[in-house]
C-alpha cells in the first residue's frame, strides 16, 4: 500500500513537468533539497538538530564548480561522486569533534562552523568569486557533450531514480542496528553505552552520511542552477533544511522530500499570485502544518496507509 502510494506520487511528479515545463526546475530543486533535508533528518532521529548543514549543501555545489572549472572534470557522474566524497570527508573531519556535543551545543557549533565557511566563501574573493559566486558549466556524460535541456531532464528523471535508490539505502541504514541506535541515543544514551554500543561511532556514521547526502543535494543544485554563490551557505538555508525535514516529518525517508515539495510549491505560487506578501504566505503555510500535523506531512501518508488494510 505504501509502495503504491509512493509510486503514485512519483507518477504525478513525472507527469506535471511534462504539462508545465517550468515546474521541471522547481521539481528538480525539490529533489536536491530533499536529499539535503534527508541528511538533516537522519541526525534529527538522534535528537540532534544541525543548523549548519548549508555548509555541506554549498560544499557540494562548490565542489562541482571547482571540478569543472579548476580540475577539468566535466563528467556528470564523476562530479556528483566527487561532491559526495568531498562533503563526506569534510563531514568526517568536522564530525569527529561534533559528535561529542548534544542539544543546543551541537546546534550552535554546527551553526558556527557553517558561518565560518560562509565567511570564507565570501571573503576569499580570488578563489570563490566572492559574493557574486561562480558559474558552473554544463557537464558531459560518459564523454559525450550534452545540451542544457538534456541535462535538465537527466537531473529531474535521473534525480528521481537516484532519490529512490538513495532513499532505499538510507531506509535500510535506518533499519539496521546502526540506524536503530539513533533514536536510542535520544531516549537514553547511557543505556546504549551499557549495551556495549559505541555512541560516538554511531553518531559519526550518521554525521558522515548526512554530510554526504547534503553534498549530493548541493551538487544537484549547482548543476541545475548553473551558478553558486555564498548565499547557499548562509544559516537561513540551514534553517530551511531543518524546516523542510520537520515539515515533511522524520518518520520515514520520504518525509523530507514531501516537505521540500510542499515548501517549493507554496513558495512558487505565493511568489506568482501574491508578489507583495509572499513571505507571509509561506510563513502561514508552515504554521498550519506545524500546528495541525505534528508528525509532519509524512504523518498523513502514515495515517492513510495504516487505515488502508482495515477497509
Amino acid at each position: 500500500m505504501r509502495i503504491a502510494l509512493l509510486l503514485a506520487l512519483a507518477a504525478l511528479f513525472v507527469a506535471f513537468p511534462l504539462a508545465f515545463p517550468w515546474l521541471a526546475f522547481v521539481f528538480t530543486l525539490v529533489i536536491s533539497k530533499g536529499f539535503a533535508a534527508l541528511g538533516v533528518a537522519v541526525l534529527l532521529r538522534a535528537g540532534l538538530i544541525s543548523i549548519g548543514h548549508a555548509l555541506f549543501y554549498s560544499l557540494g555545489a562548490y565542489t562541482v564548480a571547482y571540478l569543472s572549472r579548476g580540475a577539468g572534470v566535466t563528467d556528470l557522474i564523476l562530479q556528483l561522486a566527487g561532491a559526495v566524497a568531498v562533503s563526506s570527508l569534510v563531514g568526517l573531519i568536522i564530525g569527529l569533534f561534533m559528535v561529542r556535543y548534544r542539544g543546543i551545543f551541537f546546534a550552535m557549533l554546527n551553526l558556527a562552523v557553517s558561518m565560518v565557511f560562509f565567511t570564507l566563501l565570501s571573503k576569499l574573493y580570488a578563489l570563490t568569486g566572492g559574493t557574486d559566486g561562480v558559474r558552473i558549466g554544463t557537464p558531459t556524460l560518459f564523454g559525450t557533450t550534452i545540451e542544457r535541456d538534456t541535462l535538465e531532464s537527466i537531473l529531474l528523471y535521473g534525480g528521481l531514480v537516484l532519490a529512490f535508490g538513495v532513499g532505499y539505502l538510507v531506509h535500510r541504514y535506518l533499519k539496521s542496528p546502526m540506524g536503530e541506535a539513533l533514536p536510542a541515543v535520544e531516549t537514553n544514551e547511557i543505556r546504549l553505552e551499557y549495551l556495549g554500543i559505541a555512541v560516538p561511532r554511531v553518531l559519526l556514521a550518521a554525521y558522515v552520511a548526512s554530510a554526504g547526502l547534503a553534498g549530493l543535494g548541493g551538487a544537484m543544485y549547482g548543476l541545475l542552477v548553473g551558478h553558486v554563490s555564498p548565499e547557499l551557505a548562509y544559516w537561513t538555508i540551514s534553517g530551511q533544511l531543518v524546516l523542510v525535514a520537520v515539515l515533511g516529518g522524520i518518520g520515514g525517508v520520504v518525509g523530507p522530500f514531501v516537505g521540500a515539495f510542499f515548501l517549493e510549491i507554496i513558495r512558487s505560487f505565493a511568489v506568482i499570485y501574491f508578489d507583495n506578501i509572499w513571505n507571509l504566505i509561506i510563513g502561514a503555510g508552515l504554521l498550519i502544518v506545524i500546528f495541525f500535523l505534528p508528525r509532519g506531512l509524512y504523518g498523513l501518508i502514515e495515517r492513510a496507509t495504516q487505515r488502508g488494510p482495515r477497509r
Binding site: 517550468w22 513558495r267 506568482i272
Partner: peptide
C-alpha cells in the same frame, strides 16, 4: 527571495510565450 527563487521565476516567465523580454536584475550575483 534568493538566487534559486529568482532563477525559477525567470524560467517560468520565459516559458510563457507572451513574455517578450526580461528586465533583470538589480543584484550582480
Amino acid at each position: 527571495q534568493g538566487g534559486e527563487g529568482v532563477v525559477s521565476e525567470f524560467r517560468r516567465l520565459a516559458g510563457d510565450q507572451s513574455i517578450g523580454v526580461m528586465v533583470a536584475a538589480l543584484s550582480s550575483g
